[in-house]
Amino acid sequence: MITLISSDKRKFHVLEEVANQSLTIRDVIEDRRGRRRADRIILVTNINSKIPEKVIVYWLRHFLMPEEIAHASMSHKKAEKLKKWEAKFFDTDIDTLNDLILAADSLDIPSLFDGACEKVSDILKNRSAEEVGEISKIENEFTHEEEEEEIPSENAWVWRNEFA
């Protein structure tokens, strides 16, 4: 059993085999092998407790079938079920998605990273820059001239839908 400690000091106990899905944690455990029990504590200081909870849920769901996922040998029915589960898992607010991506990146969990990035790309799909700006509160920072000149000449066609 290893212990993860989040930035708000909550402790999460996880089976080593489960946490091994994080390549970062696996390497840390490997480095510390044979040492004292205290060394099985890993600080994940850059993320709050909400995220480890989600990450562990994700691990547990995937832990049951890592081999099958790796070798793409899952039965069609199982694959469909997992897909449905993941769709629900990633169906969350954009701040959580954001933190999941950061956690998956720093803990090096490739499938979680891909899944969360793909979900963000789904949110961006078929949305104009203005809509994305509203959803994400990102300021576009383009000066009036840049917006007039640079953007239209290159990309104007993508959001004009003239004869739909």
Partner: peptide
Amino acid sequence: HITSFLTFPDHCRFGAVC
């Protein structure tokens, strides 16, 4: 990495966000 999931038109719209 996120843009790698976007089609060409979505990629162009992405570039106009900020």
